[in-house]
Design a protein around this nucleic acid. Sequence first.
DNA 1: GTGCCTGGCGCC
DNA 2: AGGGCGCCAGGCAC
Length: 545
Amino acid sequence: MTRVRLSRLPGDQVLITDHDGVEQVALEDLAALVRRREATSPRWVWDDTARWYPPLLAAGVRVERCHDLRLCRRVLRRAPAVDPGALDGEDSRLWDALRPVVATDPVLFGAGDAADHLRADVEDARQLAALSASPDAPRLSLLLAAESAGALAAAEMTHAGVPWNAEVHEALLAEQLGPRPPRGAPPHRLAACADDVRRLLAAPGLNPDSQPELLAALRRAGLEATDTRASTLQRLDHPVAAPLLRYKKLAHLFHTHGWAWMDEWVRDGRFRPSYQPAGSATGRWSSNGGGALSFPAQVRPAAVADDGWVLVVADVAQLEPRVLAGMSGDRGLADAARGTDLYQGMADAGAVATRQDAKLGLLGAMYGATRGESGRMVADLTRRYPHAFGLVEAAARAGERGETVRTLLGRGSPPAGASWDETPDAPPTDLADQGRRRRAHGRFTRNFVVQGTGAEWALCWIADLRNRLWRLPGDGPVEARPHLVFFVHDEVVVHAPAHLAGAVAAEMTAAASTAGRLLFREMTLDFPLTVSVVRSYADAGKPGT
DNA sequence: GTGCCTGGCGCC
DNA sequence: AGGGCGCCAGGCAC
């Protein structure tokens, strides 16, 4: 497969390097060139997908595959199976220092970008050499391809956006908060709630948003509270509890997904958040604009498909326990995972008394619970599933020793020092404190191997799904065909013409099988999906975990 | 004023 | 003394 490397040159020029040699075009001619050469299915190599791809999408150009040098360099840098020296060379420190481009940045090719003078061909050659010298090359290659495909999917999702019905959203806000207030003022219902709280606490000047003020007012009313969490307030035996909880709920809606949020993130009937692939240490995506990965059930009714279109929503049941079964080769756990409900499968096999016990024990093992009911279940289940539970336990112990752990495809955990306090002026830590930090890092590495491998499965899933969707009937640019509009860890949403809903659902399932085979090879594992075809995202059935 | 931290909540 | 995130407001330091 041809690798076509793109580098920025001064004067709005682009340097194009491939096996045939070197060519130079003006930036304004790039989209036409990419469109033409895409017919030969090359792999486009560039410093950051979020910098190069959005302008191409805006010009109606979709690419099949790429290699994101920034993302892949980070993977290779941290991979225990890659020689760090192989990544050193010309400009390598600058490559290490590259920060992600925010996908919603309007000036994607603005002058003065840190990557402007970096040579993609030089870095690409370096990465290929580092990769081929690694004993983990096959798995790492898959990871790099998946990571890059994910970056394409992320840019496409931001480009297309989640179909958003502003009228529905506004009606929802008006119903709960009252009419839109003037700038800087609170909505009526929220102000009324605050008044109730002030009256019931006999605290006329109280700002309920201030934790210190609120705690002081609660104490004056004879209530013992050391924090103002909803769960704490709920237990208060006092008439102020109800309006206070209501206030907090409404305030959160107003501040995080109210009119200001709509003004900022919804344009032309689309919600366009910015994703950051591999934004978290485990390889999960994060979001750096719009709160893509946490838009709550409260406003989901406003995510509504276009006329004649539907949203096809799919999520994986118990992704991480299944991934744990696969990566540990625990046949017993894999057998329990054969149905649609892994926890029930464990109960049916007699490993635990109830489904709830199974869930407590597995989640406890993956999160590092040591006490309470969850901790006890972990001990019981370790005897029944020694491979699976042994794997997370070993990862925890390695982390406590300060060692790096890795995901199935070879992503390495960040060094222990990264999360430990190493600032020069930090107060000296005593032995007990060091012990706490070690154990905390052990819990992190314990979870890292499972969460990170889960993220790898999900990347393979959306990468394959993305290509399958492109092959469905349709023409025109990405957003005119069935396309991904949302992804969050173990769930995807596709916007599709209604008559293709069944085909989309089938591709989702097929892609899940592909992901399972890519990661776990000979070990057959089920990854059952819950698929809903709906007009509004809020109507998607989600049995959840 | 800016910038960083925390508490609290949302999502997985 | 159960993992990963983002975002908001308040509160503090500068």
